[in-house]
Amino acid sequence: MSTASPSTPGTATSDPAAAPATSAPATSAPAASRRATSGTAAPEASAPGRRRIGRRLVQLYSGLALYGASSALLVGAGLGLEPWNVLHQGLAEMTGLSIGVVLIIVGAAVLLLWIPLRQRPGLGTVSNVFVIGLAMDGTLALLPDARSLAVRVPLLLAGIVLNGAATGLYIAARFGPGPRDGLMTGLHRRTGKSIRLIRTAVEVAVVVTGFLLGGTIGVGTVLYAVSIGPLAQAFLRVFAVPSAPSGSTVVAGATPGQAILRS
């Protein structure tokens, strides 16, 4: 991070009356200014940037882990999954793999589709592929079977709210969109169609395919669809990271949903 030069002129030059006639030419102000800005000034100035990027990293990985845990709660409730996890669950039923492993494989495959769309992944994009799947499988391994509605309904509601909070956390960190979100924005740019239309078409296709493969659709799917947008928007405001000063490269300059790590 660059440090501004001192604004007071002449502070680095010596008194001409005190200098002998044969002395070397006085040091130029720019050179002295460069010396004045070296030393401890740069580390002190970069400390807020380090704290900011530290907070963003915590938000990113906390959000991704909580997203995986919230998805596991929805699986445990058995009342309907979010669209992509309907597909993941169906593929897991078909292949015998865990739903978390399928999520990782599908995420990696979707990320490959970014290449012809000329999308640029960020740290959050790559982390999204692995962390959510691992957290999902880990939570499912600890989650007891829920048989009664008295347990399943609270699991469903907790999963949806936690998913909204997790979405706000990792998107507000601004380390790049997830593979599936980036696919939709890339298709939007290449086709000129609205994101709403593309998202609807992709998620309907995903849900139908997942359902045909054995994924769970239910009241939870509908409740998730109508509530996740407002929840994520509310939590984005809660977890928003203050922007870096103008000219800093610590914080990506894109919008939260499309930010790419540039530092």
Results as ranks from 00 to 15, higher is better:
residue 156 L to H: 12
residue 154 P to C: 05
residue 147 R to V: 14
residue 187 L to P: 03
residue 158 A to Q: 07
residue 173 A to E: 08
residue 172 A to L: 04
residue 153 V to I: 15
residue 167 T to E: 04
residue 186 G to D: 04
residue 185 T to V: 14
residue 189 R to Y: 00
residue 150 A to T: 13
residue 188 H to Q: 15
residue 150 A to P: 01
residue 158 A to P: 11
residue 164 G to Q: 07
residue 148 S to P: 00
residue 184 M to H: 02
residue 173 A to I: 02
residue 176 G to Q: 09
residue 154 P to V: 11
residue 173 A to W: 03
residue 175 F to S: 08
residue 151 V to P: 06
residue 175 F to M: 13
residue 147 R to I: 00
residue 160 I to H: 04
residue 179 P to V: 09
residue 179 P to G: 06
residue 163 N to H: 13
residue 148 S to A: 08
residue 146 A to I: 00
residue 179 P to I: 01
residue 168 G to V: 06
residue 146 A to D: 12
residue 149 L to R: 10
residue 185 T to M: 12
residue 185 T to L: 10
residue 149 L to K: 00
residue 167 T to V: 09
residue 162 L to K: 12
residue 161 V to L: 14
residue 186 G to P: 04
residue 168 G to H: 11
residue 151 V to K: 04
residue 186 G to Y: 09
residue 160 I to N: 08
residue 149 L to I: 03
residue 158 A to L: 15
residue 152 R to Y: 06
residue 179 P to H: 02
residue 170 Y to V: 08
residue 188 H to V: 08
residue 182 G to H: 03
residue 150 A to E: 11
residue 175 F to T: 02
residue 190 R to Q: 15
residue 172 A to I: 03
residue 183 L to R: 08
residue 177 P to L: 02
residue 186 G to L: 02
residue 145 D to A: 14
residue 155 L to A: 10
residue 178 G to L: 11
residue 153 V to A: 13
residue 146 A to G: 01
residue 190 R to D: 08
residue 159 G to V: 12
residue 156 L to E: 02
residue 184 M to K: 12
residue 147 R to Q: 07
residue 157 L to G: 04
residue 155 L to V: 07
residue 173 A to R: 06
residue 163 N to L: 15
residue 188 H to G: 10
residue 165 A to H: 02
residue 147 R to H: 09
residue 156 L to V: 07
residue 159 G to R: 07
residue 182 G to V: 00
residue 151 V to Q: 03
residue 164 G to D: 12
residue 158 A to D: 10
residue 173 A to F: 09
residue 150 A to N: 06
residue 182 G to Q: 00
residue 155 L to H: 09
